[in-house]
């Protein structure tokens, strides 16, 4: 059996497989089916999220317009954290906000939690009116959020990037320059679904974020571009359904991967991906999973 341990900066992972924010609840929703590995998703203020309908199924994917519904960071710290802090995995909290101050305040509160070794700064959610993606689509605003959060947050800071930009590499370089420890990409692609019979948009918000296997080629391309553009580790995600997909992301340059939409179809998929990576490493004679990172032969 090959060694699956991976480090992302100071963050030590027992394997390169994580679950993506917004697809895994607080982890507890999945505890009947599997052992838990990661958690995500909290914003500073209570957010009701967008009206129904929030989801449209599309060929090989889904559009969502959830809008970061959650009960806020104080609820997380008081009600959720005590019940999950002793799970033997890395719990990473996804942080979003409407203003730079929101991000800073949330990060500061999370900084004091002993069992939260990292945050994922979400500057790429396409489904909230203010904040979210607005920060992640220009270099100055992305840099500003990261700079301000870096001042107060001492642990591992992952910055989640938006694919809805002309050049994702320059955004990645901008956040690297302000002290991001790693980047994760891609968040969902802005998309739209229409009901022709009713001549109406399917989603209440008209547009939403596309995820699932449909986005995988775009995500792979962006992971490859970004990993060539920055020195910090890249966490790859976007349409990963199985171990082969995960391996492709690592070959493209990802140090670790996240699984999102696939959790909805098979709640146990993440552990299957770990097993599949292990089999692949044995089959091809690799001793350590890190040998896959950027091992694409061109």
């Amino acid at each position: 059996m090959a060694n699956l341990n991976i480090n992302i900066g100071k963050l030590q992972l027992k394997n390169p497989v994580m679950t993506a924010s917004g697809t895994f609840g607080y982890g507890t929703e999945f505890s009947d089916f599997m052992d838990l590995s990661r958690i995500g998703g909290t914003t500073i203020r209570e957010r009701q999220g967008n009206p129904y309908p929030r989801m449209a199924e599309t060929p090989s994917g889904m559009l969502n317009a959830v809008g970061l519904q959650n009960k806020g960071v104080d609820y997380f710290i008081n009600k959720i954290y005590p019940s999950i802090k002793d799970i033997d995995t890395n719990i990473i909290v996804n942080v979003s906000g409407s203003t730079v101050e929101d991000y800073v305040e949330t990060a500061e509160k999370l900084n004091s939690l002993e069992k939260i070794p990292a945050i994922e700064l979400n500057i790429s959610c396409p489904n909230v009116k203010e904040g979210g993606m607005a920060f992640g689509t220009s270099c100055p605003s992305a840099a500003q959020v990261v700079r301000e959060v870096r001042r107060v947050y001492k642990n591992e800071m992952i910055v989640k990037l938006s694919p809805n930009v002309t050049d994702i590499s320059e955004i990645a370089r901008a956040v690297e320059g302000e002290g991001a420890d790693s980047v994760s990409l891609i968040n969902t692609l802005l998309g739209m679904a229409i009901n022709a019979e009713k001549r109406k948009p399917v989603l209440s918000t008209i547009t939403g974020g596309l995820s699932g296997p449909a986005v995988k080629p775009i995500a792979l391309r962006m992971v490859w571009q970004v990993s060539n553009a920055v020195k910090i580790p890249v966490i790859g995600l976007g349409g990963i359904m199985n171990a082969t997909d995960a391996i492709e992301f690592m070959l493209a340059g990802a140090t670790a991967i996240q699984i999102g939409t696939a959790n909805f179809i098979d709640p146990t998929v993440s552990v299957k991906v770990v097993d599949g990576i292990n089999e692949y490493l044995d089959k091809h004679g690799f001793k350590h999973v890190s040998e896959l990172i950027g091992a694409l032969e061109i």
């Binding site: 917004g22 697809t23 895994f24 609840g25 929703e29 999945f30 999220g49 129904y52 929030r54 989801m55 889904m62 969502n64 959830v66 519904q69 939409t261 959790n263 909805f264 709640p267």
Partner: peptide
């Protein structure tokens, strides 16, 4: 999508 309270789509 999920049926188990994770995706928050069916509100």
């Amino acid at each position: 999508a999920c049926g188990i309270g994770a995706c928050l789509c069916c509100v």
